[in-house]
Design a protein around this nucleic acid. Structure first.
Lengths: 185, 185
DNA sequence: ATATTTAATGAACAAGTGTACAATAAAATT
DNA sequence: AATTTTATTGTACACTTGTTCATTAAATAT
């Protein structure tokens, strides 16, 4: 069953309005009322689809996460010059992905945003890493793969947080080199 | 200049009211109105001190972070049986600290809470780790200590997140053993 | 093309938000 | 103990939130 054209239109209008507002103010300061006024959508209609502004943002979020997964599938362009036994290409791609969607990640890493966004990001990175980890450490029987991937995924996100904190002044390539250096310690 | 007794009383009343409410409902669902009704404090008075319920919570937060720092100063009770060249006692104390304040950390790690709490926690862990890191890697000249400590601090918090996600079913000792095992890989 | 389905609208509601200000009362100062 | 300072209170205001429901209108199905 395909979605009703009217639903598609209102969702699109709301999505566009949100994008415009996000250029001016932070996510948590955007009210349902002003969003609906800009989108020319009835407030009741908004509540029929989303409970709060954050839920609308999460739809956009999912698109970005899809790109993260897609870029993981891509040929490993960036790993050739950065050979190191412990580095896997997936982690290396992450900084380029963040650089590509910098505007988005400035929101995701901003203080006022709910922790749930970080968790969504964490989940994706963790699952990308889990595969590589499980292949690596199949021999060590009683090691908790979930915990190891949680450890490694969040370690890399720690670099991303610090990168954001330093206003993304380094290039994605810089971050790659840094990660390889840390892993080689 | 010491704080006015009235200010102390109202802040105390609000703090107590918040603690009672947090046992029943989540932080983000507590309204200023109900908080003030329970605390028997005028709503205007609340706004004179805090802008939102979260700001009140952050005062409580600072006390917990003080304990985290204090426990770092304590004799290293827990490290004797867990000797490993790369493990430092500070990181090992963290899981016991989290276990001690489990109720609190269930809030800090909950999805609806703003990312700022995670950052406050991150900051403290990072600064605890930074000292050990800088002592370790003084020889490697061009390594960014801030980035390395961000990496390691968040790695450990990754374990904490996964611990929380699994409802703290492991003991703090279990988590210590796990961390040592991961670091020894 | 017409009938049917259903999404969007507008209006109205109780409740919470954030702010302002004069009146009051509690604490600090003399 | 009397005076001054200032935090708290009560009240009011315009606004946002989240929900409900009958009406309208757009899309789908016949």
């Amino acid at each position: 069953m395909k979605t009703d054209l009217r639903v598609f239109k209102t969702k699109e209008a709301l999505r566009n309005a949100l994008m415009h507002l996000l250029e001016q103010k932070s996510l948590n300061s955007i009210s349902v009322t002003e969003l609906c006024q800009l989108a020319k959508v009835n407030r009741g209609t908004f509540y029929a689809h989303y409970g709060q502004v954050e839920n609308l943002f999460e739809e956009y979020f999912k698109n970005i996460m899809k790109d993260l997964a897609d870029s993981y599938q891509e040929p490993y362009k960036y790993v050739q010059s950065l050979l190191s036994k412990d580095v896997n290409p997936a982690t290396i791609r992450i900084f380029h992905h963040i650089e590509k969607y910098e505007t988005f990640y400035r929101i995701v890493f901003s203080k006022t945003v709910p922790l749930s966004y970080y968790y969504l990001l964490f989940d994706h990175v963790q699952s990308l890493i889990r595969d590589d980890v499980s292949e690596h450490y199949i021999n060590g029987i009683d090691i908790d793969i979930t915990m190891v991937s949680a450890y490694q995924a969040n370690a890399i996100l720690g670099l991303a947080i610090e990168w954001h904190r330093q206003d993304f002044k380094q290039s994605a390539e810089d971050m790659n080199r840094l990660l390889v250096k840390i892993l080689s310690i």
